[in-house]
Nucleic acid binder design. Structure first.
Lengths: 413, 413
DNA sequence: AAGGTTTGTAAAGAAGGTTTACAAAAACTT
DNA sequence: AAGTTTTTGTAAACCTTCTTTACAAACCTT
């Protein structure tokens, strides 16, 4: 039961290595000397941690011309030429694989796409095939694979629990099965969580720098109302990975039937699909959000009435999120706002009126700038980084059925 | 800017000391040998950590007869006879001070109560006076003081931001001022957060053992709808300490005016005060929840109609909380359920119907068993424990305006 | 009383971080 | 152009901490 742990002194070294990775993730490339300044760890220690990471293909050195007195620094960055990771996105219709450097930059030319298979077995083989294709294309080491998928995921067991849209993954441990087959680390993430991680690490640095943001919410208002919450620098999962199920708050008494089995859930009236449904009802045929955007922009269709119906519910959703999580930003993923430039501003106004002033004042609502592919990649990179320190208290912490062991969280200033 | 940190090797020792404290907090008294088994840390290391904590008056040794072969173990427990902490609860009407051991057990005979003063200055002097009374009564060392107070608190700056009910604390740093005057560590906590901590550490072990519970929600439905959320073992604060403002979700369009300035907030229709307001309206005079409970129990008053109005809103609140935080338990603090034994069951039923099934199935809704006094005490103990490791990532983490320093989280299994 | 078992500590050894010293590489100065 | 200054990165000695090993203490069983 005690599970003989490895020697404790090693912990410090592991923590230092993780700190080095985190600095590069947050601030981009820098030299060893920069790290000693940032982390307050002495130079020789940084050197040792760095060389260990270089050996493990997590980092790479490069020269960069930069003027200034003194010996020029050897710059370090997250590995992009010596190593890569793979991101796998599973959606209802199709899947795609893409490779990326450890800095999270996608290598778009490596994209590989296929229809979501009908059975779990063929999913595995399809993924393996695509993996070989993507992986062997470049002569670099592949360190891991991250999987972004819809539905409910048990992070501790790394198993899919319930995915209405991709039922073949239910009860399956895709990550574990692929780890065995491919021989590299694989992790699964709920897609909203993956977007959160992506935003955390690789968020649009131009429009406001979300890197290292510790409290924000990612709202996916596409096919449903998905949400990922970053709270205190960690993805909020709750007791069983279900936290953030905003979409199924009761909203319309005896409203439209929801996929969850209840009626009038918030997501039946406040997402792209809800808008599409309303429009479909009116025009008498099934129409999707993409087509709606297209027809509206070409002036062939007007959906003002439907927008007017959806908007208050959406602003309620955002208002709730701000009051309950007190994020410094809310990122919104959805096509709805492509309909009209002023729509987003109308949403902001409506939300402001609904929300407790101090929480709203502290929060910026913006459109998201990350993709699920980036999310999948961010997931595996997060995993690899956290794996440097055993027992780290992150999203992928191993099963802690008995909370026997006290954990200590530490850093330096 | 680099802020020269103390030597890094010391970090391990500090983490070990914190681990020892955590084990005792979670599992109660045990011997050094038990700790080596629980923590997987070797015996000499445990011994050193323990003796350091003994010197710091955080622990104490005691003998206990227990049969079994072998040399009898020297039991260790959180200090109760050699040290104490003080809890201060500030409420709208009055304040009380109480002392407790480091195990969180209140020493009821030490209770000291006074009316909440009208000025901040007199609050300070009142507290100091009461502190001396409580503190000098016993010949033990006082290690710190925890303050539970309503309103909004900036944890990093340890300053009261906005407290409608106790406005004299607005903008004041009571903790810092008392630290200077008293010469011991003082911390402030928002009262719902304090209840969370209390439940986390000292929760009713009889009825289901909430000790060490890592994901739960504490709902205070007394004078408003206060909430504290424990997520992943940490109190959820959000970006500026406002997380969990459930009470001000918009609920009734153009409803009754709320203290926050808006109309129809959830807390205007779903707490003890809301019930009392409804009853007051009907009977034509102002009546409080205590009197309502009293009159109802004696059969002089029936409030079924008002209950029927309040209950759906309350069940919506709980439903939202379960969907959004996925807690394993929801603790409810309030007098309302003293009205009728069946009331609580009715609430459960209504909530079940409203909530996403898997999240509801994983969650138990129970009445809370902790007090604000315990919360204040739990707060200072949490602070003292976390202070063992500098830079620990807890509720009382110091200001990290620039996220310059990467933190590593670690433990052992 | 002897043997067995568990507990707790002391001493030696190992691992890691820090301090000190120094070489390397570029820009600035004379 | 040569020397000086500044910054970077590593090597060696030292210190702290944890671990391994050994052992004494205390109690139970036979």
């Amino acid at each position: 039961m005690p599970a003989p742990p490895q020697s404790r002194p090693r912990l410090l070294r592991q923590m230092n290595e993780r700190s080095v990775m985190r600095v590069l993730q947050q601030h981009g490339p820098c030299s060893r000397a920069d790290m000693t300044r940032r982390l307050g760890i002495t130079a020789p220690t940084i050197s040792k941690a760095v060389s260990s990471l270089l050996r493990g293909r997590m980092l790479e050195e490069f020269d960069s011309k930069q003027d200034g007195v003194g010996r020029p620094a050897r710059q370090l960055r997250l590995a992009t030429e010596t190593a890569q990771v793979i991101g796998l996105v599973i959606d209802a219709q199709d899947c795609h694989l893409v490779s990326a450097g450890l800095d999270g930059q996608l290598l778009d030319e490596s994209l590989c796409k296929f229809q979501t298979p009908k059975t779990y077995r063929s999913l595995i083989s399809k993924v393996v095939k695509a993996f070989d294709q993507v992986s062997n294309g470049r002569a670099v080491e592949t360190l891991g694979l991250g999987i972004s998928m819809p539905g409910l995921i048990d992070y501790r067991q790394q198993r899919g629990l319930l995915s209405p849209n991709v039922p073949i993954t239910n009860g399956q441990s895709l990550a574990r099965d692929l780890t065995e087959t491919l021989g590299i680390g694989c992790v699964m993430l709920q897609e909203s969580h993956s977007l959160c991680l992506a935003q955390h690490h690789y968020g649009d640095t131009a429009g406001g720098n979300s890197r290292g943001l510790d409290n924000f919410v990612m709202l996916d208002i596409g096919a449903g109302l998905g949400m990922g919450v970053m709270a205190g620098g960690r993805v909020l999962t709750g007791h069983s990975g279900l936290a953030g199920e905003l979409g199924h708050l009761p909203r319309i008494p005896n409203g439209r039937a929801c996929g969850c089995g209840k009626r009038g859930c918030l997501e039946t009236v406040s997402c792209d699909s809800a808008l599409a449904w309303l429009v479909s009802q009116r025009i008498g045929r099934s129409i999707g959000i993409d087509e709606i955007v297209q027809l509206t922009q070409s002036g062939e269709l007007s959906v003002d009435d439907e927008i007017a119906q959806v908007l208050p519910h959406l602003s309620f959703a955002i208002s709730a999120v701000i009051s309950l999580y007190n994020p410094s930003k809310v990122f919104i993923c959805g096509r709805m706002f492509d309909l009209d430039d002023k729509l987003f501003d109308r949403l902001l106004e409506a939300t402001a009126a609904d929300t407790l002033a101090p929480a709203f004042a502290d929060c910026e609502i913006v459109r998201a700038s990350v993709s699920k592919s980036q999310g999948a990649v961010a997931g595996i990179i997060e995993y690899l980084t956290d794996s440097l320190v055993p027992g780290v208290d992150g999203l992928f912490a191993p099963a802690n059925d008995s909370t026997d062991v006290a954990t200590a969280t530490a850093g330096t200033r």
